[in-house]
Design a protein around this nucleic acid. Structure first.
Lengths: 331, 331
DNA sequence: CTGTTAGCGCTTTCAT
DNA sequence: ATGAAAGCGCTAACAG
């Protein structure tokens, strides 16, 4: 079954494809009678122009791309905000997970951008890119940007303050041996969170112990080893600040494997406040990022850029949310 | 800044575009030396072929489309499952919310399908379509299908049993005046859930009262009026079975406006078990749909179809999850 | 082994 | 007011 093309419409209406194109796009130079007739045929045949073909000729599609490495909860929440913010505008959203078939994780955003940009999408919102995107054919804004030299537009939370708040919360509960399961170290967010952790320790007069920092990479699977390592330390921590909720949840799972209960035997705090954080047992204490709002902010910046406006760096506050996974250390 | 095209590569490498194309796609008929040279230029220039242009010529893109009306939690969870299931295959995922700019909700899937199908995506997974999709140029599978005559492939939960379980749960707590905030009545799922509700009432010897059924439409905004109507009845219900979690949550919000607390003054049960259900206060009692698994099932069916296999109707069990939003009626 | 050519579905000058 | 033709970036015959 072949799709209906503009040629089919033209043939059925007894006019040329050029006329059909004009009729559909409201260009003038079409007689009222012809217009009505063509549109009725379009309707009858259920014709819709191919996004691909249109995109190729006209260099504008009215679709915004959200480029992600994979559809994990963080990206999904952002997407939800982006989608809501785009209601009532002339733009549709298209979300693309470009690293799935590629296998290769690094550089996925460049690949996606090259494949979609300039055609198909008018602008892109890139989530957690693995590098600072190069000058591209379309405007882009990065959410949770790479740590390299500042690319144009970014939206992120004030990670340093968020991490400080998390660590201070643990300190205030009486913990002294506080570990950090860190994030994807190529991202600015992970670097800032580690920095916030260290600075809060310092302020509390706690000596920084490098053996208490393990890699989590922001992903469940990448956190397992680090979580084990932390708990198998000769002198294990009584609390851990995980760089995001996914690794916090994995931390808790691994702790259970070691016979440790949270928060009784170990306090765990995360970062992000994905929907799963509050749904988890125990409910996760975390630092909330206003994900939908960040998505909306990215849309705002991007639309401004598409209208020829200036780019911007948006920073939003992160907020400590105390729930059940943190408690004072055992006596 | 223009995007790098195959012409740029050809020029830089001093060969024709045809040769570049062959080199990139591993076709034979290219000398080893030429191949190496071309690939090095490709690398240097950071060239990636345009998905759009490729799609137009070759009628295959290795991308699967997930078509949704909007990115709400239900679709997002499904997307997550789809994405995971596609790992390790040669397919990428592209999610498209086609009704955003259109404004018009009805028929969004036909529009999306026409715009993307045949080009851009090799197959589509359509979430809650507003009609039975017509024979199309690409294989499709519908999740939570329309109630019309069966289109080819579908994936859904056994809604009737799920709804019965929900209603029976309410009955077993001692409720007799049980309302139903129903879903999008054009969907099979909503019809089956209402049917399950009525059949469970009947089995319990409770006379069906049509004034206890209000419209919710599966969306927060569409549930508000129905929720109010139910509570303003001369003889209001003591429990309500909301057709999905979004409307259950709205039901609870409206109840609070009426000074009613859940579950003390009113029991509310939802359907779906979106992440927010467990995160809500009070935690929502609901009927769980295995959303990620359903997404994965849809992928499996679609890949089979893409390989020339037969379509299938997958039905999965729904499971009652008792949490905090239901309790016995007040004495 | 390499290049020339046609054409995917559409929009846009430019003739008529 | 209408249509013929060129061309967006690419691939697949086909010639050389």
């Amino acid at each position: 079954m072949r799709r209906t093309t503009i040629h089919d419409v033209a043939r059925a209406a007894g006019v040329s494809v050029a006329t059909v194109s004009k009729a559909i796009n409201g260009r003038d130079g079409v007689a009222a009678a012809t217009l009505a007739h063509v549109l009725s045929v379009v309707d009858e045949l259920g014709y819709e122009s191919s996004l691909v073909a249109t995109s190729m000729r006209r260099h504008r599609t009215n679709v915004i791309g959200v480029l992600v490495a994979e559809f994990e909860p963080f990206a999904l929440q952002l997407l939800s905000g982006v989608s809501t913010a785009l209601q009532g505008t002339r733009y549709d959203v298209l979300a693309y997970a470009g690293s799935i078939s590629a296998g290769e994780h690094r550089g996925w955003e460049r690949r996606s951008l090259s494949r979609l940009g300039g055609t198909l999408i008018d602008g892109a919102i890139i989530v957690t890119p693995t590098s600072t995107p190069p000058e591209t054919s379309v405007p882009i804004v990065a959410i949770d940007p790479h740590a390299g030299p500042d690319g144009p537009a970014t939206v992120s939370v004030i990670n340093l303050d968020g991490a400080r708040a998390a660590t201070e919360h643990l300190v205030s509960l009486g913990h002294r041996r506080i570990a950090h399961l860190r994030g994807r170290t190529d991202l600015e967010s992970a670097q800032q969170r580690e920095k916030g952790y260290r600075s809060a320790l310092e302020d509390a007069g706690i000596r920084f112990d490098p053996t208490l920092v393990a890699d989590g990479g922001y992903r469940t699977a990448d956190s397992t080893a680090g979580a084990h390592a932390l708990l198998e330390l000769p002198e294990p921590p009584t609390a851990v600040f995980a760089a995001n909720d996914l690794s916090a949840i994995e931390m808790i799972r691994v702790a259970a494997e070691h016979g440790l209960r949270v928060p009784d035997d170990l306090s765990v705090i995360g970062f992000d406040d994905i929907p799963n954080a509050a749904a988890h047992t125990p409910q996760l204490t975390t630092v909330r990022q206003p994900l939908p709002e960040m998505g909306a902010a990215a849309v705002r910046v991007l639309l401004t850029m598409l209208d020829g406006g200036e780019y911007e760096h948006v920073r939003m506050p992160a907020e400590l949310v105390v729930r059940e996974s943190t408690a004072p250390p055992r006596a």
